[in-house]
């Protein structure tokens, strides 16, 4: 099966290990991975800040980039959701709305793709440790992917789970919110890190690079011995 990877700009620039893990996991599951070089960013930072018109060129570039793809898979619920938002943004545009609809229809978040399309729940991963899982808001509430990550994680051998209290609560990232309202964001991520600590887990797993950068940055600043892992890295552990 041919999979076109939408790596996201955060993974491309800051977390290339996550991208590598995605490629390796999907290849092991029999997928042929393609990475179109012309992909950049889904446009969320400026779109969410209100610069809708200024972001449209970036979105059009992404639509064109993935036009010929069969499946578009992204290791981020938030960025995958953004593709699902494109038809709404280009509503009424005779050229771009149909193209946006076709992109949205074939775009999946990584775990959603593995569970729903590949129909795999055990990727054969193995990782020793006690973990907890952060459900990111856009992935669960907006994209509607709730079950897939836990289905996959439950089959990772050696991994024990503790439930995260207040797991439905945002970590305080919110893209530009984290710098625009830095003081509020700090309190939010601080509470999240406290909740993570309370679980006694030594690994915090998430499926969105943005949330993990936020939570990880706080854990690092506070010097907590908790490892931050993207779910792709967990699924790639053996």
């Amino acid at each position: 099966m041919k999979v076109t990877l939408f790596a996201t700009c955060l993974v491309d620039m800051f977390q290339s290990d996550v991208g590598k893990a995605v490629v390796e996991v999907l290849e092991r599951l029999g997928c042929e991975i393609e990475f179109p070089e012309s992909q950049i960013c889904c446009g969320q930072p400026s779109y969410n800040s209100g610069y809708v018109e200024d972001t449209k060129n970036a979105m059009k570039r992404m639509i064109t980039t993935f036009e010929d793809a069969e499946y578009v898979v992204s290791p981020s619920g938030s960025c995958a959701y953004m593709f699902h938002e494109y038809p709404h943004i280009f509503q009424g545009d005779p050229i771009w709305e149909p193209k946006a609809k076709s992109l949205a229809a074939k775009t999946y978040e990584l775990t959603q793709f593995i569970v729903d399309v590949l129909q795999v729940e055990d990727v054969g991963a193995q990782l020793a440790g006690r973990a907890t899982y952060h459900t990111s808001c856009h992935m669960t509430r907006l994209l509607g992917v709730k079950e897939a990550p836990m289905k996959l994680l439950k089959n990772v051998k050696g991994l024990e789970f503790s439930e995260l209290s207040g797991k439905e609560r945002c970590c305080g990232f919110g893209g530009t919110f984290s710098v625009k309202m830095g003081n509020i964001s700090e309190q939010m991520v601080d509470e999240k890190v406290c909740n993570i600590e309370e679980t006694g887990a030594d690994i915090i797993i998430g499926a969105d690079a943005g949330c993990l950068m936020n939570i990880g940055g706080r854990i690092d600043r506070k010097g907590k011995p908790i490892k931050v892992m993207h779910i792709a890295e967990v699924l790639n552990s053996r």
């Binding site: 710098v179 625009k180 964001s185 950068m213 936020n214 990880g216 940055g217 600043r221």
Partner: peptide, 11 residues
């Protein structure tokens, strides 16, 4: 504003 509360990853 970011680094007042947390580390930022190096590119």
């Amino acid at each position: 504003a970011w680094t007042e509360a947390r580390e930022f990853p190096a590119p």
